[in-house]
Amino acid sequence: MADSIYGLMARFDSASEIFHAAEQVRNAGYKHWDCITPFPIHGLDGAMGVRRSHVPKFSLIGGLTGFTTGMSMIWFTGAFDYPLIVGGKPYFSPLFAFPISYELTILFTAFATIGGMFLLNWLPQHYHPVLKSKDITRGLDDTFYVVIEARDPKFDLARAKALLTQAGAKEISELEA
């Protein structure tokens, strides 16, 4: 185990190269590793063995909260806190409360989805060894990188380098922690 480095960063020049490299790293049994890509590559989640995102759970909770908030707010204001007859209509009815509850469902779902995405991605995180690399500009432009972290239990500098070279890496650099 190398303590002084964060990990290895290996360059690949096309989407299909990193796709196959990701399969090999996954099959080698690494857990703490990642791909840096300028855009989401179709199927790369499967090649990396990343499981389905948990974001929808946040969305569901947000949506339910929003709908409940809408309905209970309209009931509270119109039927409980200050009952007032307007146009001979009932103090509360789920029918006239629906449009606003519907909008609040969407509003809360949006916030929960985005909040969930940030939480799961642990963003904002303005400091990261990958961002310190001089290659990150290209990594967000037209080049693809595999990063294997040193904290992975299977990590061994020489073996990881060999794996990445065998997977077709064009260039391998060490990331400082």
Binding site: A22, D34, C35, I36, T37, P38, F39, P40, I41, L44, D45, M48, V50, R52, S53, H54, V55, P56, S59, G63, Y102, E103, I106, T109, A110, T113, I114, G116, M117, F118, L120, N121, L123, P124, Q125, H126, Y127, H128, V130, L131, I136, G139, L140
Partner: peptide, 27 residues
């Protein structure tokens, strides 16, 4: 937000984007 193009991030990002598209449609 410290975005670094990580595919693990893209995975959640894509899902969030899809859901936002899904709720913006009825919106």
């Amino acid at each position: 937000m410290g975005w670094r193009g990580s595919n693990r991030h893209w995975s959640n990002y894509e899902m969030a984007y899809l859901i936002l598209a899904g709720i913006s449609t009825p919106l």
